[in-house]
Design a protein around this nucleic acid. Structure first.
Length: 437
DNA sequence: TCTGGGGTCCTAGGACCC
DNA sequence: TCTGGGGTCCTAGGACCC
């Protein structure tokens, strides 16, 4: 099963402000660089679509009300949506805030028919949340997803046509049904892949069935070719994965006015670091890899990343790493987007080596190994600052510093085992004990 | 019409290890 | 002295999903 809430963000806004009912409403950025994230069906009648630039949306629908997103609010509804699905079966996998896949095989073994389960789900979501939901049923994720699209209301000639609400692709009909869909309808086929396929004369799913997978792979890569070849046969081995682990998190921002100059970029980076650090701590994670992405005014992007031998979750540490990564980016160009991302997660726990540069704690015990750091010698942020000041007073300004300063000076630290140089490359250096670092 | 922000996955090359 | 083939990890970029 695939279940998908109708016009989710826009619908939540209408629920919270009934005066919006019946009006063309969208959620998204209203500024010059904004895009539409979600549009009510009234707005869709005018041609407003998600991912459409807001200025375009306003042009095709001058009466459009564009609201900024309130994601905390959507998350509340999303959790309730997931809870209702969970009541049906624990075998479900969220996809964003407003979609889920669910494996109904265990329900079937209990004698519950998928069509009944789908109807019950829609009824509860509408009754308890006031939202509408389309449900697709099929033999695998491929058909369930395509079917849920078919279940939705549709705009035809500026009018709205009700959808069936539930759509089931029965196994007997699935091959014929699939054959006449455009390749663009398939999961993983976006504008770029569709264009490549079009060059090969492949427009419809049935066209894919007649092309050799090896040939396909030369144009779209091995992984995509294998998926497409399977989909063309109606085969999809992807499982419903319960509790998929988070792999990365980050924060990106497109600025209403592009940034110019390193100082503006570094200021923005600090804000980003605080957002990312808070998200990590909220999830009890530390990240080994930090990356930055910069998009210039000409829409070209570059990214830089660095993987450390330990995890971080502190905004100052993350900010300093980000700043160091930006050293090799041309900041004399004007920048419309700055992103900061964390990945390579380790679960944060008592034994995890945790280097913090700020509020949190620093535990550097030269006698213990990396895996048995005790928290006994934790240093409060004030004590840390005081200690840093004292070291600088006695040994000079560059004797100890933050990671951002490492890129300029490098730092040398004396421990019971000798002296250790710290510089921009230190994170890659596995030769000395992490605990001493 | 001019392109967001949250993510995932894939590819290719290079460094490195055995 | 110059070399293979298996593997992992990291980096950068790109495509795609909602």
């Amino acid at each position: 099963m695939h279940a998908d809430l109708d016009a989710f963000f826009a619908s939540v806004e209408v629920l919270d402000d009934p005066s919006l009912r019946g009006k063309p409403v969208a959620v998204g950025g209203a500024g010059e660089r904004g895009v539409i994230a979600s549009a009510s069906y009234e707005a869709r009648r005018f041609g407003v679509r998600s991912a459409m630039p807001s200025v375009v949306a306003k042009r095709v629908c001058p009466a459009l009300v564009i609201l900024p997103g309130r994601f905390d609010r959507y998350e509340v509804y999303s959790r309730q949506f997931h809870n209702i699905v969970r009541d049906l079966t624990p075998d479900y996998e969220p996809l964003g805030l407003d979609e889920v896949f669910a494996d109904l095989r265990s329900l079937r073994r209990l004698g519950v028919r998928p069509l009944d389960a789908a109807a019950a789900l829609r009824s509860r979501i509408n009754g308890e949340l006031g939202l509408f939901c389309g449900v697709g049923l099929g033999r695998n994720k491929l058909f369930a997803k395509l079917a849920s699209k078919e279940s939705k209301p549709r705009v035809v000639d500026r009018g709205l046509i009700e959808g069936p609400g539930v759509f089931w692709v029965s196994p007997e009909l699935e091959t014929q049904w699939l054959a006449v869909l455009p390749v663009r309808a398939l999961w993983g086929v976006g504008p770029a892949t569709a264009a490549k396929l079009a060059q090969l004369g492949l427009t419809w799913v049935r066209d894919l069935a007649r092309v050799d997978e090896t040939t396909l792979a030369k144009h779209v890569g091995a992984s995509m070719a294998a998926a497409l070849a399977a989909y063309a046969q109606g085969e999809d081995r992807r499982e419903v994965v319960v509790d998929r682990a988070l792999k990365s998190l980050g924060h990106d921002q497109t600025f209403a006015r592009s940034l110019s100059g390193a100082n503006e970029v570094y200021e923005a980076l600090k804000t980003h670091a605080a957002v990312v650090a808070r998200a990590l701590r909220e999830k009890d994670l530390v990240a080994r890899t930090i990356s930055v992405v910069v998009r210039f005014d000409d829409l070209t992007s570059v990214s830089r990343s660095q993987t450390l031998s330990f995890g971080v979750d502190d905004e100052h540490a993350i900010g300093a790493i980000g700043e160091a990564l930006l050293q090799s980016v041309d900041l004399s160009r004007t920048i419309r987007l700055l992103g900061l991302h964390a990945s390579g997660f380790l679960v944060r726990n008592e034994n995890q080596m945790q280097l913090s540069f700020g509020l949190d704690t620093v535990s550097l015990d030269a006698k213990s190994s990396a895996t048995e750091i005790s928290r006994e010698r934790q240093v409060s942020s004030e004590a840390l600052r005081d200690a840093v000041d004292e070291v600088r007073r006695r040994f000079g300004r560059t004797s100890v510093g933050t990671a951002s300063e490492l890129s300029e000076h490098g730092v040398e630290i004396a421990t019971q085992r000798g002296r250790h140089a710290f510089g921009p490359e230190v994170a890659r250096d596995e030769s000395d004990a992490t605990s001493e670092r």
